[in-house]
């Protein structure tokens, strides 16, 4: 009897998470994954690997970076390093969210799987909803939500790949801009402090310079390291000045 009501409860919360995903986030993520699919097609990546990239990598920005770098003919080592650097934020997302989901009784494999599903959209949704939710409801809600997103995004990346070669140039051009639009809005939208704004501003300013002068597909990496380090140092100086002004 107890077991039945427990599994009923699990279904209830998983369905609520799924409904929440269907109400918006799935569609909006899928829109950008159509664009990602068309980038993958242009990069010459086969459909199977394109589809697989969604559940395997499960980080839209990293997938855009990966297919974009392949299209640009970047060196394999540069792709791996740039991708890894851009995914450092996953460490932050996971570290801040995992304690909210984790349960001592969970096996390592289960923790690994739950953790693998953490990305920008699922993190934002979780931070909004999970704190007020009872502990037993969190995992089913999260799983329901994230699997709807994953299903939609996997279908969408395939649709984008397939359509890319068929659609008229007008629609093709528009589809290729979905990813940078979504991506830039998300990066700017997540900016909270001076250091974020400086990093974004310098990232934009350095992009043409890095493209022109840094060879071998390391341009994005050099851009990130230089603009990010300057933003970090400038932010420290700002903080020090504020601290000395306060005393």
């Amino acid at each position: 009897m107890e077991a039945t009501s427990q599994s009923e409860d699990w279904k209830h919360w998983a369905w609520r998470g799924a409904r929440r995903g269907l109400a918006g986030p799935m569609w909006f993520m899928s829109l950008s994954f159509i664009g990602t699919g068309s980038i993958a097609h242009d990069a010459g990546v086969p459909l199977g690997a394109t589809l697989l990239s969604t559940p395997l990598v499960w980080a839209g920005p990293a997938q855009v970076l990966y297919f974009g770098a392949i299209a640009a003919g970047a060196a394999p080592a540069a792709i791996a390093v740039a991708l890894s650097l851009s995914s450092v934020r996953l460490l932050l997302l996971c570290v801040s969210l995992l304690p909210m989901l984790r349960d001592r009784r969970m096996s390592f494999l289960m923790v690994f799987y739950v953790n693998h599903n953490i990305a920008i959209t699922s993190w934002a949704e979780s931070m909004l909803r999970l704190p007020d939710m009872k502990r037993e409801a969190r995992i089913p809600y999260f799983m329901g939500f994230v699997h709807v997103l994953m299903f939609g995004s996997t279908v969408a990346i395939g649709v984008g790949w397939v359509l890319s070669s068929q659609v008229p140039p007008l629609i093709g051009a528009a589809m290729l801009l979905v990813s940078p639009l979504y991506f830039f809005t998300t990066v700017v939208g997540s900016a909270r402090k001076a250091i974020d704004w400086i990093a974004i501003g310098l990232g934009l300013a350095f992009a043409p310079i890095a493209r022109a002068y840094v060879p071998g597909g390391f341009d994005l990496l050099v851009l990130g390291l230089s603009a990010g380090t300057i933003a970090y140092v400038a932010n420290r100086m700002l903080r020090a000045r504020r601290a000395s002004a306060a005393t």
Binding site: S86, V187, I200, L204, P208, D219
Partner: peptide, 25 residues
Amino acid sequence: WVRAVSTALLTGVVASIVLAPSGSL
């Protein structure tokens, strides 16, 4: 520091798609 580097890098990705896009864009 790492977060600032990745923010700049992600912005650079957007900029490079806008500056030198593929396909009909």
